Amino acid sequence: MLSTASAAVVRATLPVVRAHAVEITGEFYSSMFAAHPELLDLFNQGNQADGRQQLALASAVAGFAEHLVSEAGDDAAPFDRVAERIAHKHVSLGIRAEQYPVVGHHLLNAVGTVLGAAVTPEVFAAWHEVYWLLACRLIAAEARLYERGDLDPARLWRRWRVAKRLDEAVDVVSFTLVPDDGAAVPDFLPGQYVSVAVDLPDGRRQPRQYSLSHGPGRGSLRITVRRVRGHDGAPDGVVSNHLHDHVTEDQILVLGPPAGETTLDIGDGPVLLISAGIGITPMAAMLDHLARTQPTRRIVVAHADRSPAHHALRRECAQIASGLGEVDELYWYENDHDDGSRSGLLDVDVLPLTPGTTAYLCGPLPFMHKIRAGLIRRGLSAERVHYEVFGPGMLD
């Protein structure tokens, strides 16, 4: 709970901090990386370059402060979902508690650098309190995840051998992975992801998160990677292109543990799996798991893509669906096709919805915003609409 004195200061200064938040986080990352270049290995430099990481951090800190000083006085529940998402991301990368003082030092110094004389000792103390309330919440959440998975963050990364490489669609390839040391494959939940750390030719190590694209219990992990091609001046995806161009069978990849909070529920009600583009990957894992554990559960699979040729895992998902009792498959494609699928964008109004349905979404943020709003308009409660966000974005 934020102290009364600090709450008054934060409430008064929050508009100014929010207005300069991206500038503050930009200064923060610049100064922290200059002092601790080893931390570059933990951050997606593509997200740094286009500003998405700075915006995500700014939104998280300002959003947490806003909840702390909200009229309702509830400093826990509104932020829990965001905190859980951040904690899972941190665990997938091996973030440790002792790194939080480094972050706090550079973040609060960045506030002073950007806002200058406006940062009085009282203002500094208040925002110092905000940061450490956030840090302690995340440290505790991450500690629980490390304990639950029997993980040591100092020895988190493991070597995995590529047992199979398979071209799935235009610019999409799957890698089936087994532990290089012959140890057991860790258990995971359908919908989770792993971090893949790639050593690039220029000497940099870069991590990326990729959803696991088949269900647990198969004696392996599988990731399905879309080649990111730059457009409108944006560069190509460094890691995705490296995986496509240089990683073949029997080569080694370094992975973190499975993580992620958007996972299939263990109930028995109807399930709606909605995806676009490479967002099919966690949905494929959920469908695979449902087919092997709850084949009589009511399932609707809905997917949107550029064309059938770009639709990754389509044949596999169709084969799985063919063995289920009560399942609908609905596909939309932007480009011409002659397979009986729908043209244009996914239409939420034609999706079969039955009472008690739980929906899972994965795809670009604008797509998920639109579909989520449509499902709620059609009567599905917000608590029954779950979504996976690729990258540092947060869906309201």
Rank of each mutant, 00 (worst) to 15 (best):
W132E: 07
W132C: 06
W132L: 10
W132I: 08
L133R: 05
L133Y: 01
L134S: 01
L134Q: 05
A135P: 09
A135Y: 05
A135I: 07
R137I: 06
R137T: 12
A140G: 13
A140Y: 11
A141W: 09
E142F: 11
E142R: 11
E142G: 13
A143E: 15
L145R: 11
Y146T: 14
E147A: 15
R148W: 14
R148Q: 15
G149Y: 12
G149N: 14
G149Q: 15
D150C: 14
D150G: 14
L151Y: 12
D152K: 10
P153H: 12
P153K: 13
A154H: 15
A154E: 15
R155P: 12
L156M: 08
W157L: 13
R158P: 07
W160M: 04
R161W: 11
R161H: 09
R161N: 08
A163T: 10
K164W: 13
R165M: 10
L166D: 14
D167E: 14
E168D: 05
A169T: 06
A169I: 06
A169S: 07
A169Y: 04
V170N: 11
V170I: 12
V170P: 06
V170E: 13
V170H: 09
D171W: 08
D171R: 09
V172D: 07
V173R: 11
S174W: 05
S174V: 08
S174G: 06
F175C: 08
T176H: 07
V178Y: 01
V178D: 00
P179S: 01
P179C: 04
P179T: 02
P179Q: 04
A183I: 05
V185E: 04
P186Y: 01
D187F: 06
F188T: 02
F188W: 06
L189G: 05
P190E: 03
P190D: 02
G191V: 02
G191I: 01
G191H: 03
Q192H: 00
Y193C: 07
V194D: 03
V196A: 06
A197I: 05
V198W: 00
V198S: 04
V198N: 00
D199A: 10
L200A: 02
